[in-house]
Each structure stands twice: as structure tokens, then as C-alpha cells.
Design a protein around this nucleic acid. Structure first.
Length: 644
RNA sequence: GCCGGCGUAGCUCAGGGGUAGAGCAACUGAUUCGUAAUCAGUAGGUCCGCGGUUCAAUUCCGCGCGCCGGCACCA
């Protein structure tokens, strides 16, 4: 005799077990029609499940976030059925819902191609139109394994074999077709609707392990209705327009070419942007108690052997040799061992701690070819790197201090929110477990102190210590680690860093590896996408273009540009023999934030007509006044704060 | 690195076993114009590279390189 509590607090009493469908029907025909699934005491379940005990029930309708997930999951099942009916012999594996859609991994000798999509989609629509009921069945474990094995579904058989013994083995049928699945599902395939589309094919390793077979994955997107699908497709197009590779070319910021794969040719405008960011970071670090250093590019392999990098990362290091010398050198893949060398140079006292050693360190790593991506993932890059040498007791305070700086920097670049992940000990690591316990505990404590909320990223720490990852998102929705903070008890030991403590004895310092931007290249890529090339004035590589209307105003235009440059602004004159309309259009498309238009009138009055990007309003000011105004507007955020 | 796709002018793209095409950009000339494209003309190509098939390959086939999308990797 279950008492069922509904979200409005009302309680319904039933004589004996009832299904969700029956409960919904008892409440009203509207709900009976709209309910797709339910949550029993917070756990999602099929409407067909029977309820025997007292519980709280919430029905899931199409508008609920859970519904979207179910639509996607159900669509994945329909995709699998369609594929198996069209391509016999294809094995099914797994097919979850993901952000914006779903995928399904198939095992098939010949990978799918986008040309296969129309046929598959057509079959999927047939299956949806059939409105086949999703039917849940509980199977005996061994029977299930035998069943799938007999069908040649060895991946499914393996999945079931590896499920914990406590797990109930459930099968979902949709008409003739069935799949191993935890569920839940909606009522029938018709609930999916028609707002889905197959998007792309990709290879994917079975169980995400590169030693396993490569499966063929089909990605799709699915939504509640056509309008949502259209909006999503439109957003993808918009994202493509923001792509930093496209904007980099259009704005003439940088290029990459075959002779230097993974390294960037920065063009004048791109380098101007880079320098603006670098100078900003240098001011912030100077003001935050860091000391900047510079260390060698080429370092003998013996140092990398001592640090442990040679053993673990040798395959990913660029090695340099010279004919006359026997030495083997490596282009530095990171800066920390070099920074330890500076720390070790001379006897250190506890009074010097914490020592914050910063370097805009140019590093090279031989990244796998498939990992390269525009300027976001490259082989030659520069980190805004620093190492904080401190005592164990100083970890929490230094972490809090760092997070505060990072937040402020991100806010200055327009990022008010970002994600933080806590990556703990990986399987292969250096250092004793006891050391890891201390390092992880110290970092957790530091997060609490700094008020940092994080999600766990298990097993993803660096080989020498746990880390915080500060994650930003690009235009296409991909996440990139930018900032990081890593607690390291191992390297100081390996490279024998020590200081003299208050007790006159020698002690090991702790190292905090930390970066805010991560690499300039990656951060600039994300920044370009975030602003879609329309940078705020302080970052814009060309801040003002002075456009003359007639050739008589050409000389004055040059004077205006010179005056702006004298004021520290990046300004150029456009005195070409073009109509003002053409100039406005061109420089607007080039995302120049401010246009200063000058004709005969302005030349006579020694004034300028300012026009801001994104507005067609004109503001006529005297030249000196305009320079002062723009100069103040173009101040970097930290400079402005200091000036107040 | 693995799976799939792609590689034609500076850019965006069309084409196709036998003289390589457009728009924009560039260049030259005319035009001197008030806030998102003035007009006319000119020039521009190892059709990614190497090999093969063929009387003939940019086109078909193979290999390589690069790029794109995923997967794996990311000190």
C-alpha cells in the first residue's frame, strides 16, 4: 500500500503496487500524456517500473533537463538498431548521451563514413515512427553473457562479465532489437521525436585504451524539437566564425607552416597582442612578489635524468647533439629543473622563503601529431611559469595567494567564472605514498582556505605531485587547461634543493609549480575566440585607424596618428584613395575598436570624429582631448586600478 | 601515434584523363567622395610532394607530408 509523495507535497495512496504510468494516469490525463519517465526518491526510472513502497515521485516531462538526456540516450539506442539492421555483422559496444547529443561505438572491419549517414538516419526515422515500446527485462548474468557471446557480440559479453556481481543485468528491448543497458528509457522510440542528426564519425579505442582495438564511433546531436536543433546547428556555425585559426588568418596575427609544424610564426599584429599580454603579466607578477629569471634552452641530459623527466618523457623531448661533442642536450620541455639550479646556487636560508621564481619560459615538447591544434596545442610554446619554494607550512597560504592572483588576472581578461579540477595521484608516480598523502592533504587544505570549489579529476596528477587545473572553454566548447598549481615534494629531493632552517639544520623546501595563463599560445588562442577578434581597447593590436575622407586631409590624418602614437596608442593612418564608406567597412571588418575620421572640416578645426566598433555614432573632439580620452580608455586594467 | 575526411591563385571555393576557372584581395589608371564595398583595366597557379598506370595525370592508383574532426597523449 504505497503512499506516494508528489513534488507539491500531496500524498497519494494506492492499494498495492502501481506502475509510474498508473500513478500519472491517476493524477490526470495531461500528466499521463506528458510523463516520459519518473524519479523515485531522486533516482530515474522507467514509467513502467512498479512502485511497492512509500516514496517520493517526480515525473519527468519533455521540458525537464533529464528528458533531454533521455532523448539522447534513446536516440543512441535507435542508432545502434539502425546500424545493425543495415550493416549485419557490426557489433555494438557502448552509446552514452553526452553534452549536446550522443555517440555510439561500433566494432566493424570497415569504418563508417559520413556518406553512410543518410541511409542510417532514414532507418532511424523509421524506427522512431514505429513507436516501439522500451521494455525492461532483468536477465541472469550467465545467460546474458551466453546470449551475447552466441550472437558474436564479444564486446557486450565482456562488458557484462566485468560488471560487479552486485549489479542487476538489465536488457532493454525496442521491438525486435535489444541491448544491454542500465536504463532508464522513455516510453517508446516515438518519444524521441525528429530533432536529431548524425554529425561525424571518429575512431575511438575500446574502453579508451590505446592498446585496445579501435572502434568506429558515430556522433549525433539530439534535441527536444526542431527549433532547439536549429539553434544548436546555428551556434556551431557561429563557433566556426570565432575559430582562432580563422581569425588569426583574417586579422593577420600568425601562421604555421610545414617546415615548423607545431611552432608559430607571429606576425606584427599577433606579436603586438602577445606583448600586451606578456607586459601585463610581468607587471602582475612583479607586483605579487615574484622574481623573474631566465634559464637555458639547451640543457644536458644528465639534469633531466636526475629530475626523472628523461625516464618518463624522453620520447617527447627534442634532443640536440653536436658532431664534435659527446654530450647529449635536450631543448627544455619545462623550466622547473633549471629553477632548482638557481635555488641551489648558494646556501638558502628559511628567511628567503617563500621564494617565488618566475620565468616566461620557452619550452619545446614533441607532442603527438594528432594532438596539435592551431596555437592551442603546439610543440614550441612559452609558459608564464613560476616556482614557489616554500616550507610545508606555507603551502596553504601561497596557494590562496596564487588563486587570488589568478582570479584577478582571469577577470581582467573577461573570465569571471572558470572550472577547477583537483587531479590526484596517478598510477605511475614518483615519491612515497606517505609523501603523496601529505601533498594531497596540503592542497585540499589550501583549497578550503582559498575558498576554491573543485571537481575531482582522479589519477590525473603530475608524476611528482597533485595539481589543481584551471580550465577555460573555447568557442567550440572544448575545455583547455590553462592555469595550474602543483604541489611537489619530489623534485626538491631528486635535485637536492635545501635551505637552512631556524634550527640551523638543513631542510627540503616544497616546490609549488604554477602558471596562470598556462602557455601564451594557448591562452591567446582562447582569448581570440572569446572576443571573436573584437578585443577590448587595451588588448587590440591596432587600436585606432585614422581614416581620411579626401586627400587634402591626408597630411592631417598622419599628424593625428602620430599624436596618438606619441600618446602610447597603436594607431595608423589610412590615407588611401578610397571612399570613407569603404574604409569604415574594411576597418570594421578588421575589428579595429576605434576609427578616427578626418575630413577638411576636422583638418581646419584640428579635431577628429571618433567612431567605435559596433556603433555608428560619431563623437567629434579636439585632437588633444581625443588623445587623452583614448589614452585613458586604453589603459590596462591593472594600470587603471593603480592609477585610482 | 590510431581511425576517418580533406589538400586547385593571398583568401573563399568551382572544375575535371588532353589550353586551369569565379568572387574577394593585389597591382595600374580614372575618380576627391562625410561614416559598412566607386569604376575600368592588368597580373597571378609545380592544381601539397614523390612514384606508378596511360600516347597523355591536377584528375585514376600507391606511398609520404600537412591540415581538419575524433580517440589516445598532455611533465
Amino acid at each position: 500500500m504505497p503512499n506516494i509523495t508528489l513534488p507539491d507535497g500531496s500524498v497519494r495512496r494506492f492499494e498495492g503496487a502501481v506502475t509510474g504510468t498508473e500513478v500519472a494516469a491517476a493524477i490526470g490525463p495531461g500528466l499521463a500524456k506528458a510523463a516520459l519517465a519518473m524519479k523515485v526518491d531522486g533516482r530515474a526510472a522507467d514509467l513502467s517500473r512498479s512502485i511497492e513502497a512509500d516514496c517520493r515521485v517526480v515525473f519527468v516531462t519533455r521540458r525537464d533537463p533529464e528528458a533531454l538526456e533521455m532523448i539522447r540516450h534513446d536516440t543512441a539506442h535507435v542508432l545502434a538498431e539502425a546500424v545493425q539492421s543495415l550493416y549485419p555483422g557490426t557489433q555494438v559496444t557502448i552509446g552514452p548521451s553526452i553534452e549536446n547529443g550522443f555517440y555510439y561505438d561500433f566494432a566493424r572491419n570497415e569504418p563508417f563514413r559520413p556518406e553512410d549517414f543518410p541511409a542510417i538516419e532514414a532507418r532511424m526515422r523509421e524506427i522512431v515512427a514505429r513507436r516501439a515500446k522500451f521494455v525492461r527485462e532483468v536477465w541472469d548474468r550467465d545467460a546474458a553473457i551466453a546470449f551475447f557471446a552466441a550472437r558474436g557480440e564479444r564486446y557486450k559479453a565482456e562488458l557484462i562479465r566485468d560488471l560487479p556481481q552486485s549489479e542487476t543485468i538489465t536488457i532493454y528491448r525496442q521491438g525486435e532489437w535489444l541491448d544491454l543497458c542500465r536504463g532508464p528509457h522513455m516510453r517508446d522510440t516515438g518519444d524521441i521525436g525528429g530533432a536529431f542528426r548524425l554529425m561525424k564519425v571518429a575512431g575511438a579505442y575500446w574502453r579508451g585504451d590505446h592498446r585496445n582495438a579501435m572502434l568506429t564511433r558515430i556522433y549525433g546531436t539530439a534535441w527536444r524539437d526542431q527549433k532547439e536543433l536549429d539553434a544548436h546547428l546555428h551556434q556551431l556555425e557561429e563557433a566556426e566564425r570565432r575559430d582562432h585559426r580563422r581569425i588569426g588568418r583574417e586579422m593577420d596575427l600568425f601562421h604555421i607552416q610545414e617546415e615548423a609544424v607545431g611552432s608559430i610564426f607571429w606576425h606584427p599584429k599577433g606579436w603586438k597582442l602577445y606583448r600586451t599580454v606578456e607586459e601585463y603579466m610581468r607587471r602582475r607578477l612583479d607586483a605579487s612578489g615574484y622574481d623573474e629569471v631566465r634559464t637555458p634552452q639547451l640543457v644536458d641530459r644528465s639534469l633531466w635524468e636526475r629530475s626523472g623527466h628523461w625516464e618518463k618523457y624522453r620520447e617527447h623531448m627534442f634532443i640536440a647533439t653536436v658532431e664534435d661533442e659527446e654530450k647529449t642536450l635536450a631543448l627544455k620541455p619545462m623550466n622547473c629543473p633549471c629553477h632548482v639550479q638557481i635555488f641551489r646556487h648558494g646556501l638558502r636560508s628559511y628567511r628567503e622563503l617563500p621564494m617565488r621564481m618566475a620565468e616566461f619560459g620557452a619550452c619545446h615538447r614533441y607532442e603527438p601529431s594528432g594532438a596539435l591544434h592551431g596555437i592551442m596545442r603546439v610543440r614550441g610554446f612559452t609558459q608564464d611559469d613560476a616556482h614557489i619554494f616554500c616550507t610545508e607550512a606555507q603551502i596553504a597560504g601561497e596557494t590562496a595567494r596564487f588563486v587570488e592572483l589568478l582570479r584577478s588576472v582571469y577577470a581582467d581578461f573577461g573570465y569571471e567564472t572558470f572550472r577547477v579540477k583537483f587531479a590526484d595521484r596517478p598510477d605511475t608516480r614518483a615519491g612515497e605514498d606517505a609523501v603523496w598523502d601529505r601533498a594531497e592533504a596540503a592542497l585540499r587544505e589550501a583549497c578550503a582556505m582559498a575558498g576554491v570549489e573543485y571537481e575531482l579529476n582522479p589519477g590525473e596528477g603530475a608524476f611528482y605531485g597533485p595539481k589543481l587545473e584551471f580550465v577555460l572553454r573555447d568557442a567550440i566548447g572544448r575545455d583547455w587547461q590553462c592555469g595550474t598549481l602543483q604541489v611537489d615534494f619530489v623534485l626538491p629531493e631528486r635535485l637536492d634543493a635545501e635551505y637552512v632552517g631556524e634550527d640551523s639544520a638543513r631542510h627540503r623546501p616544497v616546490m609549488l609549480h604554477r602558471a596562470i595563463l598556462g602557455s601564451f599560445e594557448r591562452f591567446l588562442g582562447i582569448l581570440i575566440e572569446q572576443y571573436a577578434g573584437r578585443f577590448p581597447l587595451w588588448l587590440a593590436p591596432v587600436q585606432v585607424v585614422v581614416a581620411s575622407i579626401v586627400s587634402d586631409a591626408g597630411e592631417y590624418a598622419e599628424q593625428v596618428a602620430a599624436a596618438l602614437r606619441a600618446g602610447g596608442l597603436e594607431a595608423r593612418a589610412d590615407t588611401r584613395n578610397e571612399k570613407i564608406n569603404a574604409k569604415v567597412r574594411e576597418h570594421s571588418l578588421a575589428h579595429v575598436p576605434v576609427l578616427a575620421v578626418v575630413g577638411r572640416r576636422e583638418a581646419e578645426q584640428r579635431s577628429v570624429a571618433l567612431r567605435r566598433l559596433g556603433s555608428d555614432a560619431q563623437e567629434v573632439l579636439g585632437l588633444a582631448e581625443a588623445v587623452a580620452l583614448l589614452k585613458s580608455e586604453a589603459e590596462a586594467p591593472d594600470v587603471r586600478r593603480a592609477g585610482r
